[in-house]
Nucleic acid binder design. Structure first.
Lengths: 183, 183
DNA sequence: AGTTTGGTTTAGAAAATTCTGAACGCAGTT
DNA sequence: AACTGCGTTCAGAATTTTCTAAACCAAACT
């Protein structure tokens, strides 16, 4: 764990030598950390998950500075994290009158976040994998012809890669169904 | 990239100063690397994916040394990797007469590997998350009573965590269905 | 025009992860 | 009983990932 789990309303010294108050209760920061680890399981960074966790349990939209301070993150991380969450449709930004700051709040439907991730992350990867497999198949044929790859070995490779391509195609057709399921 | 992508049938100097031949064609080691990155997306290490990729395109079962040499991995990594793949039912081990070595081969049904991962990795995590959320809810109530958390804020937190618990429960019931889908 | 305030970018620091060499244990062999 | 060959373990090295500080840009205000 990079940041020690701070006690509720703890006071900590930041890198400028000033003391500051983080007004998160223990259980709220625990929740943020839980989401941090969950995010990692989805290939996101912990801080992104923590930010979503913080906003998810916040009654009011929060500014970038509030996010950074509450989670003991740099403003840079908070900025990058919120933008990434925005691109995943997991949070939205708004503004108040006479206040130039951005205020962030969580979208409360995690299913839609998941769905968005499926279509924006998983689907393109699948397509990419498919293309690479096709390309591989061609180059393998060339290797067979040049004698680098023996004919029986080529047969095995070809067959198995072909099977894999078929499977990814199947999965591609199932994806929208699964998305609907999750929703 | 940790290991430079070796040209087919290249000769490389290993750490003992000996020269050795890696008899993987370029496209086969590319396939292994592709699976290495795919494995990472599933929370496994690259080497585990590479090993599976190597075995998946191998006509014959391979020994630990052959795996290590082909992928330019240490024997230690090969050992750990194969055992992990075995626990995921992704590979199986066999032995030959008059040969004490283990020989490894891929199971050719990636769907079953996925299914296994769902039940052995995803399901327990879900259960764990569920328990932690329940615990959190209790501790939050305590925080409300001690005045650390204001009553309106508690209401928001309670409501949203409860929603999340409901969602994870739903997902738990869908999981077997999705598993069947993938299969 | 200069200053302040808020968000973004980026080089490199810090931390976490992954891999390796060397040592070990165990079987079968000499 | 020493030796050899194989798989495993584990401390710490190498690498990758994640985060931060500092510089920067842009808009609003003086």
């Amino acid at each position: 764990m990079r940041h020690a789990n701070p006690p509720a309303r703890s006071v900590a010294k930041n890198s400028h030598g000033f003391y500051r108050v983080k007004n998160l209760t223990k259980s709220r920061s625990e929740f943020a950390e839980l989401l941090g680890r969950t995010a990692q399981a989805f290939g996101l960074t912990p801080s992104v998950g923590q930010i979503y966790g913080l906003l998810y349990l916040s009654a009011e939209p929060l500014s970038l500075d509030e996010i950074a301070e509450s989670l003991d993150l740099s403003k840079a991380s908070a900025s990058i994290g919120t933008r990434q969450l925005e691109s995943l449709h997991a949070v939205q930004v708004s503004s108040k009158n006479d206040d130039r700051r951005d205020y962030w709040e969580a979208r409360l439907e995690p299913q839609e976040v998941l769905q968005k991730m499926m279509s924006t992350v998983l689907a393109p990867r699948l397509a990419n994998a498919h293309d690479r497999l096709e390309g591989l198949l061609e180059r393998m044929e060339a290797e067979k012809n040049s004698g680098e790859l023996s004919s029986p070995e080529f047969t095995v490779c070809q067959q198995r890669i072909q099977q894999l391509i078929t499977k990814t195609n199947q999965f591609k057709t199932w994806l929208p169904l699964i998305e609907r399921f999750v929703k």
